[in-house]
């Protein structure tokens, strides 16, 4: 019974991720094509993709490698771009920390923007229930597989895809398609509007710092709106107690 419920959730996780695959595929293809065109071997690209498992960080690293940047600069850039995983880790910790290490580590390695967002949105529907980790595992594993396969396909296809297809735009579109359902109230709307606006204004900042600055601003805006809406209710509770 328990095992079949887990299996069902795992399959639901895969099904939730699959519609996002067309948005991930072009990004992986572009990564594979770019890396192959820069002269890296199949083995090097595969190793890089497995070790990074972070698309935007890998794209940035490839660009910096192409510009002969210092390895330390590349490492710092990747860490800055990936700082958001720290926030995902904190959000997942109460749900994941009881898992045995053999499940915790692979699942932690497979945390992605897509599977995290899908699980958080699903969990928001039942805020007090524990997160469905089988669902998270299903969406995380299928995301990981889609990513690896699409990079490998990109390496094989090489530069055969014409730029006129604008496949690069499928990535922001897929983030947009996850973002819209995540906006549930005025606080999350403020977070999104602020994050988007600051990201545009701070786009010129070096090392993709604009993304971090924008994310923190958006979160602050969400908290501010939440705090300004709730004080009346919490004061009343305080008075009764």
């Amino acid at each position: 019974m328990h095992a079949s419920a887990g299996r069902q959730s795992f399959q639901q996780g895969i099904q939730a991720l699959l519609p996002l695959a067309p948005g991930v595929l072009p990004f992986g293809l572009v990564t594979g094509v770019t890396a192959a065109n820069q002269g890296y071997s199949f083995f090097e690209i595969l190793g890089m993709t497995l070790l990074f498992y972070a698309g935007s960080a890998q794209m940035a690293a490839l660009q910096l490698l192409n510009e002969q940047a210092l390895p330390l600069v590349i490492l710092i850039t990747v860490v800055v771009i990936n700082l958001r995983f720290l926030m995902y880790s904190a959000a997942l910790a109460p749900h994941m920390h009881r898992l045995p290490a053999k499940a915790r580590w692979p699942l932690g390695y497979m945390i992605s923007d897509q599977s995290f967002a899908l699980s958080m949105v699903r969990n928001q529907q039942q805020p007090h229930a524990p997160m469905d980790l089988w669902f998270f595992a299903g969406s995380s594993f299928s995301m990981w597989l889609v990513w690896q396969v699409s990079v490998i396909l990109g390496v094989m296809v090489g530069s055969g895809i014409p730029a006129s297809w604008s496949l690069d735009f499928a990535i922001p579109l897929s983030f947009l398609a996850i973002l819209v359902p995540a906006i549930r109230n005025s606080a999350s709307l403020s977070a999104a509007l602020t994050g988007g606006l600051v990201a545009v204004l701070a786009h010129g900042l070096p090392y993709n710092l604009g993304l971090i600055v924008a994310s923190v601003s958006g979160i602050a805006a969400g908290l501010l709106v939440e705090t300004r809406k709730k004080p009346a209710a919490s004061h009343q509770q305080g008075a009764k107690a």
């Binding site: 995902y88 923007d113 922001p172 983030f175 994050g195 924008a214 958006g218 969400g222 908290l223």
Partner: peptide, 28 residues
Amino acid sequence: SVPPLLQRALQYVPASVLAALVAPAVVL
């Protein structure tokens, strides 16, 4: 442990990070 403020802040992570990833790609 996760500080309570961070715990509250985390619910706005998807909206703000996703918007920050999307907006420059769409607007610029």
